[in-house]
C-alpha cells in the first residue's frame, strides 16, 4: 500500500521532470506552491522577488472539498517548497501531501503553531480547528513558520526574508488593531456571528463573538432540519439582526434560515458576504489576506450595529 503510493508520487515527479517546462529550467527564484490563497499571500509578501508563488485554490474555492488535478500534482511534485495549511483543512489532498513530504520540502504551516493556542474541533476528537487565519495574531505565527520554511529552502535569502516578514507582520498587527477596534464597537448583546460553517471560531475567540455555523467544521456534511429549526429559534430569541454567507460555501442554508425567521415575524437580513476559506478574486484588495480580513471585520461590524468606515481600514474596500 505504502509502496504503491510512494511509487505514485515518484512517478508523478518523474513525469513532471520529463515535461518540457519553462519554470523548471533553473531560474534562481524559489518555486513555491501553496494550497490556499492566504498562505500564498504570506509567502509572496515574505519571499518578495526571490520566490515565485502559486496558489492551487483560487477565489471562492472550498478547500475542504478540493481535489487535486494532474496539473496540481505536477506542480506540487516539482516545487522547491510546498506550503499547506494542515490540521485536516485540505481533507482530500492530505494523504498525497504527507506522502510527498517524505522526500520533498513540504510544510504544514498551521501545524507549526503551538497547540495550546489552537482550538479543538467539536466534531473530530483530537483534531484542531484549521481555520487559523481568521485571527491575524495567530496567523502571524503561521507567517513566521512560512518565513522559516523559506529560509530553510533558500538560506541565501535569509536577510531579505527576515526584513520582508518584519514589514508583513507589522501590517498584520495594524490589521489586528483595526479589526479589534471596529468589532468592539458592536454592542455586546449583538455579538453573534452566524455563518454557513464553523470557520470563525478563532475569530470569535479573538474578538468576543459567539460563533454559530449551520454545518460543522467541514462543509462536506449535510445540514439536518433540526439544526435549521434550532437556529431559527435562536435568531428570534437572541434578536439577531444579521447573518452572513460565505464566498466559498453555498448560501442556501443561510437563505433558508432567513426565510424561516421572517416567516415567524423576525426580521433578519443577510449582513453580507464573508471570506472564510478563500480570499477574493486575484488583483482586488479582497484578493489579499489583509483585504480579506479587513472586509470581514468591516462587514460584520457594520451589519451588527457597530461602527466601522464604509471602505474599511485603508479605504480600499468597495
Amino acid at each position: 500500500m505504502n509502496l504503491t503510493k510512494r511509487t505514485f508520487v515518484a512517478a508523478a515527479a518523474a513525469i513532471a521532470m520529463a515535461l518540457p517546462g519553462g519554470w523548471a529550467a533553473a531560474e534562481e527564484r524559489l518555486d513555491v506552491v501553496a494550497t490556499t490563497g492566504m498562505i500564498a499571500d504570506a509567502a509572496q509578501n515574505v519571499g518578495g522577488d526571490l520566490v515565485e508563488v502559486r496558489a492551487l485554490m483560487g477565489a471562492g474555492v472550498d478547500p475542504h472539498a478540493y481535489r487535486q488535478t494532474r496539473t496540481d500534482v505536477v506542480a506540487l511534485a516539482n516545487a522547491d517548497l510546498v506550503l499547506w495549511n494542515g490540521l485536516y483543512l485540505e481533507a482530500q489532498m492530505e494523504e498525497f501531501l504527507l506522502e510527498l513530504g517524505q522526500d520533498n520540502a513540504v510544510v504544514p504551516v498551521a501545524e507549526g503553531v503551538p497547540e495550546n493556542l489552537l482550538i479543538g474541533s467539536e466534531d473530530y476528537e483530537g483534531r484542531f480547528d484549521p481555520h487559523l487565519w481568521m485571527n491575524p495574531n495567530l496567523w502571524s505565527r503561521a507567517v513566521i513558520v512560512i518565513r522559516d520554511a523559506l529560509i530553510e529552502a533558500h538560506p541565501d535569502g535569509e536577510e531579505t526574508f527576515n526584513s520582508n516578514a518584519q514589514v508583513y507582520l507589522e501590517k498584520l498587527a495594524d490589521l489586528s488593531r483595526y479589526t479589534a477596534d471596529s468589532l468592539s464597537s458592536v454592542p455586546a448583546e449583538s455579538r453573534i456571528l452566524l455563518t454557513s460553517h464553523d470557520a470563525f471560531n478563532y475569530f470569535g475567540n479573538a474578538y468576543g463573538f459567539e460563533v454559530v455555523g449551520i454545518q460543522g467544521i467541514s462543509t462536506e456534511s449535510e445540514a439536518g432540519l433540526q439544526r435549521i429549526a434550532q437556529l431559527v429559534d435562536m435568531l428570534i430569541e437572541r434578536d439577531v439582526r444579521a447573518v452572513f454567507v460565505e464566498t466559498s460555501v453555498s448560501d442556501r442554508n443561510i437563505r433558508a434560515l432567513v426565510e424561516g425567521a421572517q416567516a415567524e415575524g423576525h426580521d433578519v437580513v443577510i449582513g453580507g458576504e464573508l471570506y472564510s476559506d478563500a480570499m477574493g478574486e486575484p488583483g482586488t484588495y479582497e484578493g489579499t489576506y489583509v483585504g480579506m480580513i479587513d472586509s470581514n471585520a468591516t462587514t460584520i461590524a457594520r451589519a451588527l450595529g457597530g461602527d466601522a468606515p464604509n471602505a474599511g481600514m485603508q479605504g480600499l474596500l468597495n
Binding site: 492551487l56 483560487g58 471562492g60 474555492v61 472550498d62 496539473t71 433558508a256
Partner: peptide
C-alpha cells in the same frame, strides 16, 4: 474549481443536494 472567478461554491450540492435548505 480551478477557475478563479465565479463563486462556484455549492455546485457540489448538485451531487448530494441540500434538502434542509
Amino acid at each position: 474549481q480551478s477557475m478563479s472567478a465565479g463563486r462556484q461554491a455549492g455546485l457540489e450540492g448538485f451531487l448530494l443536494g441540500s434538502t434542509a435548505g
